[in-house]
Design a protein around this nucleic acid. Structure first.
Lengths: 214, 214
DNA sequence: ATGCGAGTTTGCATCGAATGCAAGTTGGCT
DNA sequence: AGCCAACTTGCATTCGATGCAAACTCGCAT
């Protein structure tokens, strides 16, 4: 093997601390460079050099150039799954998902990170980044579908659970696509943004509230 | 410019016929090679050679290696837009979308093409192909959202239209992902496959059907 | 029919992402 | 101290993708 692998749940060793620092340095260097020169104009070699590691080593930390824009890519699905986990017995599937959506919007520090802005701009301009982002979304959607089916075995079979998960992520990303795609998205008020997403999603999923069980 | 560009609506000239043949030859050669050797093991040079054109010329016909798996990528959005166009005045947004999705599921001859099978297998194994497929889907979704908003200006603002388009396409693709993603999808005969697609779509859209008209 | 010109094809050179390989180097642990 | 495994790094290589300039082909007006 070539690259570092994540480790135990115990105290971080010197090695792990160093790797974490290197990883962070890579991310910051990349964001900085992407912002200044653009994505295609920045080479992996430059990023590695800026983080003071060998070019070859970069690929030990990230599988590809795009991947550096999606560290902790499964944060969203983890949050959703957590929301599903501690659900109220009275809640229906759609209620749980909408609550998860609220939870994410509140606790998601990623919406305001400097990287998020860069990522969003590159999403609209660089096909490779768009492709990667959509793959991350699909992975999350699949994970959600699986947990959803596990949490509501009687109510949702696998296909229906997948449909619901797809409907949720599709609705949210669709709304965000419009809200953030328009110019001036960077100066938007997060709270108002969330309200709009919430409202649009709720309307799109409304039929599921009653019809969830077949 | 380097590559050929599509032409008028009139009679296809000799030039255009040749290009169409070359394009088709490229597609068939690529599918054949992908099938036999796998995607990563097939180089663009091989595809071009099999179609008897220079390697450089390939990129005049397709922007990248993945793109050859998605010719006529906007067929779906065109069909949807057509369905939206000739809607009944009494139909609501959901009704129109449901009808559009039905039309697509039925008239989509692409589901049984030899390429479709290869494409589906590669979707699950090759990240680049998966990314491209998702981008095509997103493009269609956006187009649908735009037309939907245009068709129901008073009823649907842009955000809601996008959320609705995302929810429906997400639900269908989510259901298909589960139903066709499991093993054995490749060995099913076309008729059975088509039936499965129909069933998945049906179940994914059921909640909206029951609540249609609102 | 002839020949001009736009549209195409192609080879060549180049760049950059990505990977295998084979040393080196470093940190963890006894 | 010293071994072992994990990690780093450079080197060579493959392949996708693009710019460039020279050939070539077809459509069309004369």
């Amino acid at each position: 093997m070539a690259g570092p692998g994540q480790h135990s749940t115990s105290q971080p060793s010197l090695r792990e601390r160093k790797q974490a620092r290197t990883r962070q340095a890579l991310i910051e260097a990349a964001v900085e460079l992407f912002e200044r020169q653009g994505y295609d104009e920045t080479t992996v070699a430059e990023i590695a050099a800026a983080a003071e590691i060998g070019t070859r080593t970069f690929f030990g930390y990230f599988a590809g150039k795009e991947d550096i824009l999606f560290p902790d890519s499964d944060a969203r699905s983890r949050a959703t799954i957590a929301a599903i986990a501690d659900r109220d017995p009275a809640e229906g599937p759609v209620d749980v998902l909408l609550r998860a959506l609220d939870t994410i919007a509140e606790s998601d520090a990623d919406m305001v990170s400097p990287m998020a802005a860069v990522r969003m701009r590159l999403f609209h301009t660089v096909p490779a980044v768009r492709g990667k982002a959509l793959q991350v979304q699909l992975a999350a959607q699949r994970e959600i579908a699986r947990e959803l089916h596990k949490a509501f075995p009687g109510e949702l079979d696998q296909v229906t659970a997948a449909a619901l998960a797809g409907a949720l992520t599709g609705a949210v990303s669709g709304a965000l696509d419009v809200l953030l795609g328009e110019q001036g998205a960077e100066h938007a008020d997060p709270a108002q943004l969330q309200a709009q997403v919430r409202q649009a999603t709720e309307r799109a999923l409304r039929p599921w509230r009653q019809a969830a069980g077949e």
